[in-house]
Simulated scan of single mutants.
Amino acid sequence: MRLGMQIKEVAERLNTTARTIRFYEEKGLITPKKDTVNDYRYFSEKDLVRLSTILALREVGVRVDEIKELLDHPTISIPEYLNIQRSVLYEKWIEMRDMIETIDDMVKETTSDSVLPENFYDLAHHLSNLKRIRKSWKDRWNFDGQATHYDENIKRQGHRFNVHEGYDTVLEKIKNKINLNLGDTCLDIGIGTGNLGAKFLPLGVKVIGVDQSEKMLITCKEKHPEIETRKGHFLALPILDHSVEAVVSSYALHHLPDDQKLIALEEMTRVLKSGGQICIGDLMFKNQLHREQVLSSFREAENQLAIDCIEDEFYADQSLLVEWLSYHGFQVEKQQINDILGFVYARLIN
């Protein structure tokens, strides 16, 4: 019985070299089985998929140590390998798009009679800042570790400070507000275990769920096999331009600082079709004054837990979201559901 493909066959099939394959083996990225008699390496089909993922990521410039971190779990399934490839390729594609747009702006500057070097520096700095922001998001909350018990840990009521008060209300409100037809596509960003996205399935809507946590995506897929799950995040959505009718998100945007929230809104707008809708239910205040009023009331009540929870996250300023959306061609509705939970609905007018 044949154990698998030998290294020369693999190299030929993947259009690479045996030397390259041995290099990745030395770096611990692949671990093919070895025949105890002749010490030959034998590669399974899953080894080939893992190796093709490594080659694809290297092709777009991902460093070996970064690949090792991405593929840290040796039991990753084939769909997960493909999900990782897609996520990284979309990030690189968005980065290239940013570069092209910056160069276009620089070309426009050179057509004027007076060209100031400062203009070029500003554009280059803007591009560098975009790249930094898109790559800077880190999971400080260990969502992979939360995935298995996430649903049972959501407390709807009680506690001295309950961030999930109004959870079911806002999810239902998003479902009722979004107007979708049979066959439309809805993108749920930060889908988690699928509690929001699943509400659109009975309507015959295609739901794509994006999350940076692989474990959350696995749990979501186990609960709702009909949902298409994709690894990604707010700042680099693994979705083509103008391809969805609606974007929804719940209890996720507050993990981004304000400057990143605006880039997230740009990404949402990029993937929307003409007349598309955005609906966000999340931890937010009406504005900065409202935030200070709420914090002041918690101080008076000596509720340090509430203050610490708020200051540990990036609760949105609803007024900033509304201002950005209105300026970029959306008709916007807003509502504050309770002191810390808000709702924003926007329809693209064009």
Results as ranks from 00 to 15, higher is better:
Thr16Leu: 01
Thr17Trp: 01
Ala18Ser: 15
Ala18Asn: 12
Ala18Cys: 14
Ala18Gln: 15
Arg19Phe: 11
Thr20Arg: 04
Ile21Ala: 05
Arg22Gly: 01
Arg22Phe: 03
Arg22Leu: 07
Glu25Pro: 04
Glu26Ala: 05
Glu26Asp: 06
Lys27Ala: 09
Gly28Cys: 06
Ile30Cys: 02
Lys34Asp: 05
Thr36His: 08
Thr36Trp: 05
Val37Gly: 06
Val37Pro: 06
Asn38Asp: 11
Asn38Phe: 00
Asp39Lys: 15
Asp39Thr: 10
Tyr40Cys: 04
Tyr40Val: 08
Phe43Trp: 05
Phe43Gly: 07
Phe43Val: 04
Ser44Arg: 01
Ser44Val: 02
Asp47Ala: 07
Leu48Gly: 09
Arg50Lys: 07
Arg50Gly: 00
Thr53His: 06
Thr53Glu: 03
Thr53Asp: 00
Leu57Phe: 11
Leu57Gly: 10
Glu59His: 11
Asp65His: 12
Asp65Tyr: 11
Glu66Ser: 07
Ile67Gln: 04
Ile67Arg: 07
Ile67Pro: 04
Glu69Thr: 09
Leu71Asn: 00
Leu71Val: 05
Asp72Phe: 13
His73Gln: 06
Pro74Ala: 12
Thr75Asn: 10
Thr75Lys: 08
Thr75Cys: 03
Thr75His: 14
Ile76Arg: 11
Ile76Glu: 07
Ile76Asn: 04
Ile76Trp: 08
Ser77Thr: 14
Ser77Asp: 02
Pro79Arg: 09
Glu80Lys: 00
Glu80Gly: 04
Tyr81Ser: 09
Tyr81Thr: 06
Leu82Lys: 10
Ile84Met: 14
Gln85Tyr: 00
Val88Pro: 01
Tyr90Gln: 02
Glu91Gly: 09
Glu91His: 10
Glu91Thr: 08
Trp93Val: 02
Trp93Gln: 04
Ile94Trp: 12
Glu95Cys: 02
Met96Tyr: 13
Arg97Asn: 06
Asp98Thr: 06
Met99Leu: 14
Glu101Trp: 01
Thr102Gly: 08
Thr102Trp: 03
Ile103Tyr: 08
Ile103Trp: 03
Ile103Asn: 03
Ile103Cys: 01
Asp104Pro: 00
Asp104Met: 02
Asp105Gly: 11
Lys108Met: 08
Glu109Asn: 10
Thr110Asp: 13
Thr110Cys: 13
Thr111Ser: 12
Ser112Val: 12
Asp113Ala: 13
Asp113Lys: 12
Ser114Pro: 01
Ser114Asn: 12
Val115Pro: 05
Val115Gly: 03
Pro117Gly: 08
Pro117Asn: 13
Pro117His: 08
Glu118Asp: 15
Phe120Ala: 13
Phe120His: 06
Phe120Asn: 10
Phe120Asp: 13
Asp122Leu: 13
Leu123Lys: 07
Leu123His: 07
Ala124Cys: 06
His125Val: 15
His125Cys: 14
Leu127Trp: 10
Leu127Ser: 00
Leu127Cys: 09
Leu127Met: 07
Asn129Gly: 04
Leu130Arg: 11
Lys131Asn: 03
Arg132Asp: 15
Ile133Met: 13
Arg134Thr: 14
Arg134Pro: 05
Arg134Tyr: 11
Lys135Cys: 10
Trp137Gly: 00
Trp137Pro: 02
Lys138Glu: 15
Lys138Thr: 07
Lys138Cys: 01
